[in-house]
Design a protein around this nucleic acid. Structure first.
Ligand SMILES: [Mn+2]
Ligand SMILES: [Mn+2]
Ligand SMILES: [Zn+2]
Ligand SMILES: [Zn+2]
Lengths: 139, 139
DNA sequence: TCTTTAATGCGACTAATTCGCAGTTGAAAC
DNA sequence: GTTTCAACTGCGAATTAGTCGCATTAAAGA
């Protein structure tokens, strides 16, 4: 039987003590082949395309489990919904094009370092942060 | 009759072509005397304390009107709800203490400038941005 | 193969916010 | 001061994103 290549996340989900179920296999495959920042509804749509019958509740629960175990990253831009992306090699922040909705990633070591400095000066240690820059294309 | 001093926002709301109604007077008074980042439920609670009978729908609608006219600033930290604050003299970003929920404001001209630089390098112009730093007190 | 218990699908529920509607009222025009 | 009328209000119903209870299924370790 031709079977889909095992997801990169599949290993990690089992290492985390989670079960690798059929719906999860599909969701992980969707996540592996995503290079954007889909929300649950979009993930569900993509999962359905591979294997109809997967419940949206399962997508929600799976994404929660993955997030809690640090296997995926969760973002909320400006519309209400949560968006997901693979845990990146290296932390990055986001430009969001207000006209198109397009998301562009960037990283500034300088900004990261300045945040550390400012937090320290306030007697805080950083747990996490989010820098969303809403932009439009210059012309 | 002793009447509350007219809200600073009262003038501006009329300049914006909005009506200065009784519920709005109360809400504006609440906003003027707030120095934190209350959500709608908290604003409603405070408004009710001054004048019972004000509907939460009115608070929602008023905050939307104020936001649309740029008379107030709207934030969403990490819980789902929207939070509001007076439009600040000068833009600032936020530390959010993950243990207490406390919000501390800060401003870094350097970070602001770097954002401009990076956006420009990507061919973007910045519409707005948000930098939320989730922290805990160092000890 | 057996057993245990996490995971699933479903539909009901919740929380935050919006909306339709009938009645009220600010404020501009008389 | 009175009239006028669209903006605003309170109410409850609707919407949206996400969670949860429950009976059933099925991973995966023994
Ligand atoms: Mn990203
Ligand atoms: Mn602030
Ligand atoms: Zn960053
Ligand atoms: Zn800033």
């Amino acid at each position: 039987m031709t079977q889909t290549a095992p997801s990169i996340l599949a290993r990690r989900i089992q290492e985390a003590g989670l079960r690798l179920t059929a719906p999860r296999r599909v969701i992980l495959q969707v996540l592996d082949s995503a290079d954007d920042h889909p929300d649950v509804e979009e993930l569900h749509r993509r999962a359905q395309a591979i294997e109809p019958g997967i419940s949206i509740a399962t997508v929600y629960r799976t994404m929660n489990a993955l997030t809690e175990h640090g296997l995926i990253e969760r973002q909320r831009f400006d519309d209400g919904r949560m968006r997901y992306e693979a845990v990146p090699e290296e932390h990055h922040d986001h430009f969001i094009d207000v006209e198109t909705g397009e998301v562009v990633e960037f990283r500034s070591d300088e900004i990261e370092r300045l945040q550390q400095d400012i937090a320290r000066a306030h007697g805080f240690e950083i747990v996490s942060h989010r820098l969303d820059i809403f932009v439009r294309r210059k012309r």
